[in-house]
């Protein structure tokens, strides 16, 4: 029987988005063998967990500690390790925080770890996962034996909405040494989302000609009303036109939005690797032979300085209705 512990992420006293998706993945593993799903919430004490039962948690384990005001890897690892013997699998979201946490837990409890997992299955003694490698240029299927730590890629599983009410249990945070002191988060003030989390990603490349032209993409992103992020190709990040955090591709972020709009990006293999799993890809480029058109669902050949403003106006019009 595979009991599963989902370690949820808290920021500023609230559960991070992705918690329901993670519980859906946990549910899938547990249900394959009649196991249960526990959700662990490490916080200072006042996190609303009312939705977690419906999202798939049989129980919510609340671990309160003053050091959990910010992300506290050492305390979280100690807490997970104190209950880990009850679980066949420990799952986290493959977010920046989850990816930091998973290998620490794995090393502490002597378990193998799989990151950025897009599919999980239980078969006998083995947990089988699929994960993109070579930045999505290939898919690796891996078998993990024994207790296992898995970081599930955001978006891989849709959240459930029809679970039963979860029971609430308080657990004690064991003594731990706070080796790393996270002092806070400086939030970006652009008002735009992170490319890894946005439903719509609009990326710019060399075709923009000048860093100041990114404003065209920011305007298009703004037209989507808070669900879009602006990304960039490696070439323009290396040229200093955009922040490295915006880079999509093999040495940047791998994204899987519902809509990806590539503007003035030729489509180097490095870039394609990072966005090929988007649901719909649109390419705007003046070179009709650009490789980006080979992966794009819809392409417009033309001058981006005419096409992008027209598209911005059209999106605004649709959104206004």
């Amino acid at each position: 029987m595979a009991n599963v512990l989902a370690v949820l992420e808290v920021r500023n006293g609230a559960l991070r988005k992705g918690s329901a998706e993670l519980l859906a993945a946990a549910r899938r593993l547990a249900d394959a063998s009649g196991g249960t799903v526990d959700a662990l919430v490490c916080s200072t004490g006042a996190v609303n967990t009312d939705t977690l039962g419906a999202a798939g948690a049989d129980r919510v384990l609340s671990a309160s500690h003053a050091d959990f005001a910010n992300y506290c890897p050492d305390g979280t690892v100690a807490t997970v390790a104190s209950v880990s013997a009850q679980y066949r699998a420990i799952v986290v979201s493959a977010s920046a925080t989850g990816k930091d946490l998973a290998p620490r837990i794995a090393a502490r409890i002597n378990a193998p770890c799989a990151m950025d997992v897009t599919s999980v299955d239980l078969s006998g003694d083995t947990i089988r996962v699929v994960r993109p490698v070579y930045a999505g240029k290939a898919l690796q299927t891996v078998d993990l034996r024994g207790s296992t730590v898995i970081a599930v890629r955001p978006g891989a599983y849709a959240g459930l909405g029809a679970g039963k009410a979860g029971a609430n249990v308080s657990i004690t945070v064991p003594p731990f040494t706070k080796r790393l002191d996270v002092t806070g988060i400086r939030t970006a003030n652009t008002g735009l989302l992170d490319v890894a989390e946005a439903r719509v990603v609009i990326s710019g490349g060399r075709g923009l000609g000048d860093p100041k032209h990114f404003v065209l993409l920011e305007e298009l992103a703004a037209a989507f009303g808070g669900e879009a992020a602006v990304g960039a190709s490696r070439a323009v990040v290396d040229a200093g036109w955009a922040e490295h955090g915006a880079q999509v591709g093999q040495t940047g972020k791998t994204v899987a939005p519902e809509l990806y709009i590539a503007v003035g990006i030729s489509g180097a293999i490095q870039h394609l690797a990072g966005m090929r799993t988007a649901k719909v890809i649109v390419a705007i480029n003046r070179d009709k032979d650009a490789p980006i058109f080979k992966v794009a669902d819809y392409g417009i050949v033309g001058d981006l300085f005419e096409v992008v403003p027209a598209l911005t106006a059209a999106v605004k019009q649709v959104k206004a209705h």
Partner: peptide, 19 residues
């Protein structure tokens, strides 16, 4: 405790079109 069972190329995207 880890075995790589397989490595495959991802499915090709269906051919798109120039609008």
């Amino acid at each position: 405790a880890v075995t790589v069972a397989s490595l495959v190329l991802p499915p090709e995207r269906a051919a798109g079109r120039i609008v």
